[in-house]
Simulated assay, not measured.
Amino acid sequence: MSNSIGLDAQKSQQLVESLNTLLSSYQIQYMNARSFHWNIKGREFFELHVKFEEIYNQLLLKVDELAERILTIEGTPLHAFSDYLAISEINEAKGVQNGPEAVAILLDGFTLLIKAQRSILAQASDAEDEGTASLMSDYITEQEKLVWMLKAYLG
Rank of each mutant, 00 (worst) to 15 (best):
S12A: 05
L15V: 08
L15A: 06
E17H: 09
S18C: 04
S18T: 11
S18N: 05
T21E: 01
S24Y: 06
S25L: 13
S25E: 05
Y26N: 02
Q27W: 14
I28W: 08
M31A: 11
M31G: 02
N32M: 09
N32C: 03
S35E: 06
S35W: 14
F36H: 10
H37A: 03
N39C: 07
N39H: 15
K41N: 11
K41D: 03
R43Y: 14
R43T: 14
F45H: 13
F45L: 04
F46D: 13
F46Q: 12
F46Y: 15
L48V: 12
H49F: 08
V50F: 15
K51H: 10
Y56W: 14
Q58W: 05
Q58N: 14
L59Y: 13
K62D: 12
K62M: 14
D64K: 09
E65Q: 14
E68W: 13
R69Q: 08
I70A: 01
I70Y: 15
L71N: 12
E74A: 12
T76A: 15
H79E: 01
A80C: 04
A80R: 15
F81N: 08
F81K: 09
Y84D: 07
Y84I: 05
A86L: 06
A86S: 04
A86N: 12
E89S: 13
E89G: 05
I90W: 09
E92N: 07
E92P: 05
G95Y: 05
G95A: 00
Q97A: 01
N98I: 09
E101P: 02
A102F: 01
I105E: 00
I105A: 00
L106P: 03
D108L: 01
G109E: 03
G109W: 03
F110W: 08
Q123V: 02
D129V: 01
E130A: 00
T132F: 02
A133V: 00
S134H: 08
S134N: 11
M136W: 13
E142Q: 14
K145F: 12
L146Q: 12
L146G: 03
V147H: 07
M149Y: 10
K151R: 15
A152D: 10
